[in-house]
Amino acid sequence: VSEWTEYKTADGKTYYYNNRTWESTWEKPQ
């Protein structure tokens, strides 16, 4: 699942961004 990158927002929430599909999600990808 290497295309997903984990980021943190300014208020400390974690989200995930897909470099291949430009998708972002709050849930941890499978």
Rank of each mutant, 00 (worst) to 15 (best):
5 T>Y: 10
28 K>R: 10
19 N>K: 10
5 T>L: 12
11 D>H: 07
13 K>L: 12
21 T>M: 03
24 S>I: 15
25 T>R: 11
15 Y>W: 13
16 Y>H: 02
28 K>V: 12
17 Y>L: 11
16 Y>L: 02
5 T>D: 09
10 A>N: 03
30 Q>E: 14
16 Y>E: 04
8 K>P: 03
21 T>F: 06
10 A>V: 10
6 E>F: 05
26 W>N: 14
13 K>Y: 14
22 W>E: 15
17 Y>T: 11
27 E>R: 07
27 E>L: 09
19 N>H: 12
3 E>A: 08
15 Y>K: 02
2 S>E: 14
16 Y>W: 15
19 N>I: 11
5 T>Q: 09
10 A>M: 12
18 N>D: 06
24 S>H: 12
26 W>K: 02
6 E>S: 08
19 N>R: 04
21 T>Y: 07
12 G>A: 00
18 N>V: 03
30 Q>K: 07
7 Y>H: 06
26 W>E: 13
4 W>G: 02
20 R>E: 13
8 K>L: 08
4 W>Q: 04
13 K>T: 09
24 S>R: 10
6 E>T: 08
22 W>A: 15
1 V>R: 05
11 D>F: 07
3 E>Y: 06
10 A>G: 09
15 Y>P: 01
24 S>F: 14
9 T>D: 13
1 V>H: 14
27 E>A: 09
6 E>Y: 05
26 W>I: 06
12 G>F: 00
21 T>N: 08
13 K>Q: 07
18 N>R: 00
13 K>E: 08
11 D>R: 01
16 Y>P: 00
12 G>R: 00
26 W>Q: 06
25 T>L: 10
14 T>D: 01
10 A>T: 03
12 G>E: 01
12 G>M: 00
24 S>M: 15
5 T>K: 10
28 K>Y: 05
26 W>A: 08
30 Q>A: 12
29 P>F: 10
21 T>K: 03
7 Y>T: 09
23 E>P: 02
24 S>W: 15
4 W>H: 01
8 K>E: 04
5 T>I: 08
20 R>Y: 15
7 Y>M: 15
10 A>K: 10
10 A>L: 13
23 E>T: 00
14 T>E: 07
16 Y>V: 00
18 N>S: 04
12 G>D: 08
19 N>V: 08
1 V>E: 14
7 Y>W: 05
25 T>M: 14
20 R>G: 15
1 V>S: 12
24 S>L: 15
16 Y>S: 03
4 W>E: 00
30 Q>W: 12
8 K>D: 00
19 N>T: 12
11 D>A: 06
15 Y>L: 11
21 T>R: 02
1 V>P: 15
28 K>I: 14
25 T>V: 14
25 T>E: 01
6 E>L: 02
8 K>M: 13
5 T>S: 12
27 E>N: 09
25 T>Q: 12
2 S>H: 09
17 Y>E: 12
23 E>F: 04
16 Y>I: 03
27 E>W: 09
25 T>P: 09
11 D>M: 02
1 V>M: 15
27 E>M: 04
12 G>T: 01
29 P>Y: 06
17 Y>A: 07
2 S>N: 08
23 E>I: 03
5 T>F: 07
17 Y>N: 04
23 E>H: 04
7 Y>I: 12
10 A>Q: 13
21 T>Q: 03
3 E>Q: 09
13 K>S: 07
17 Y>F: 14
20 R>I: 15
2 S>W: 00
2 S>F: 12
18 N>A: 00
16 Y>T: 01
13 K>W: 06
5 T>H: 11
25 T>S: 14
15 Y>M: 11
29 P>Q: 09
23 E>G: 04
19 N>W: 08
28 K>W: 10
10 A>I: 08
7 Y>G: 07
8 K>V: 13
29 P>V: 05
16 Y>Q: 00
29 P>S: 05
28 K>E: 08
